[in-house]
């Protein structure tokens, strides 16, 4: 696995890689708390070995796979992706992992499979955010993709970033990275991947369906009800320079546009 299929931003002078320290200390991972620094401070105790992933639903090869078994048949690749958070900040992060399509192909979806549903670990004793009584998220955290979205070559399962094993606060040991969608779609610490017939209800849509949809494609023309999505703050920034830049359709990954041809993206936000 010495050969890399590196996917990098077309203009790296604009999309400079975010420093490791920032990408690993400023996270939304509500299983560990809602403050941006909570995941880095509290995720260290999460046990990520051994780790198994349940593959089930409309597949011919269901089963519980160890992380090693899940990863081994494919060659690790590096992808340097822009990450656009729905909160209007963004980073550029190098990931290590495999295309999601590899895993789905091996699971061998039946003709009934139309969506992929993902689930995060539930382990309150190691995830203090899950102990909170006033948390609106009904654990486990759930995300989903349409099958053709999941099969797109850009959809990625990461086990590492910055050339090393994924830090816990970034979703160790296995997380999704869907660079043309808002960050919350890129579910962390995955324990279950199910091929399903019906569109899954993702966690944020469940909490506030007027604010967060199923598709959650990065779209500068469709605002969040509480803030504009036309621009983003590229992090790190400094006090007197918010580093604001225009947000691009599909976060600049225009090659996914054909997945949505004919769809009203204002309705399917």
């Amino acid at each position: 696995n010495a050969a890399w299929d590196a996917v990098v931003p077309e203009d790296q002078s604009v999309d400079k890689t975010t420093p490791f320290k920032d990408a690993t200390s400023y996270n939304n991972f509500f299983e560990f708390g809602t403050d941006k620094s909570d995941p880095a401070n509290r995720a260290g105790q999460l046990t990520t070995e051994p780790w198994t992933v349940m593959i089930d639903g409309e597949v011919n090869n269901p089963g519980k796979l160890s992380l090693e078994a899940l990863m081994t048949p494919s060659r690790l690749e590096e992808r340097i992706y822009r990450l656009r958070c729905v909160e209007a900040w963004s980073m550029v992060i190098p990931w290590l992992g495999i295309p999601l399509a590899d895993v789905i192909r091996r699971a061998d979806p039946t003709g009934e499979a139309r969506y992929v549903r993902f689930e995060t670990l539930v382990r309150p004793e190691e995830m203090p955010g899950q102990q909170s009584r006033f948390n609106l998220i009904d654990w486990p955290y759930v995300e989903g993709l349409r099958l053709d979205e999941a099969m797109h070559p850009l959809a990625f399962l990461a086990v590492g970033n910055y050339g090393r094993v994924l830090p816990n606060q970034n979703g160790a040991p296995l997380r999704l990275v869907v660079p043309w969608k808002y960050g919350f779609k890129s579910i962390k610490s995955i324990v279950r991947i199910s091929l399903v017939r019906d569109q899954p209800l993702n966690s944020w849509q469940k909490i506030a369906s007027s604010e967060y949809g199923f598709y959650a494609n990065v779209n500068p023309n469709v605002d969040h009800p509480r803030w504009s999505q036309a621009t983003e703050r590229r992090l790190p920034n400094s006090l007197f320079n918010p580093n604001r830049m225009d947000t691009r359709m599909f976060n600049g990954y225009e090659e996914v546009a054909s997945l949505y041809s004919g769809m009203d993206l204002r309705k399917h936000f």
């Binding site: 509500f30 809602t34 948390n135």
Partner: peptide
């Protein structure tokens, strides 16, 4: 209250 998104503990 309007800013909180998922965990109401602090606000409460």
């Amino acid at each position: 209250f309007w800013v909180v998104r998922a965990d109401m503990t602090d606000w409460a």
